[in-house]
């Protein structure tokens, strides 16, 4: 699926995740967040940057690992991205939906 978000042409898969991380910009992240009904604060960005950093290093993500990362506690993670913290934050961060386990 192709979409124009924040003035940028980007590719999304059928679940709304970016298929090419290089198309991600801060504005794209903000636009996706808005669709998810989330207004991004510094605390959100801290998590998003952490996720992107892990993604670039090919490190698989899980909720508990994030909770232990000193970036956010699991409770705060749920407060920031209610319904499905890891799924929604990954979508905003422009990285693939975490497969978590395989």
């Amino acid at each position: 699926m192709e979409l124009v978000l924040a003035g940028n042409q980007i590719q999304l898969n059928d679940q709304g995740y970016l298929t090419d991380f290089s198309q991600w910009t801060k504005e794209v992240g903000e636009a996706i967040a808005q669709q998810e009904g989330i207004a991004l604060t510094d605390a959100h960005w801290k998590v998003i940057h952490y996720l992107q950093d892990q993604h670039k290093q090919d490190i698989p993500l899980s909720i508990r690992k994030i909770g232990k990362s000193n970036v956010v506690s699991i409770k705060e993670f749920y407060d920031l991205f209610p319904t499905g913290p890891l799924k929604i934050s990954s979508k905003i961060a422009g990285i693939p939906k975490p497969a978590s386990c395989i």
């Binding site: 899980s62 508990r64 978590s100 386990c101 395989i102």
Partner: peptide, 8 residues
């Protein structure tokens, strides 16, 4: 409880 686990 959470992923990853051995033998998922």
């Amino acid at each position: 409880s959470e992923m990853p686990i051995k033998c998922p």
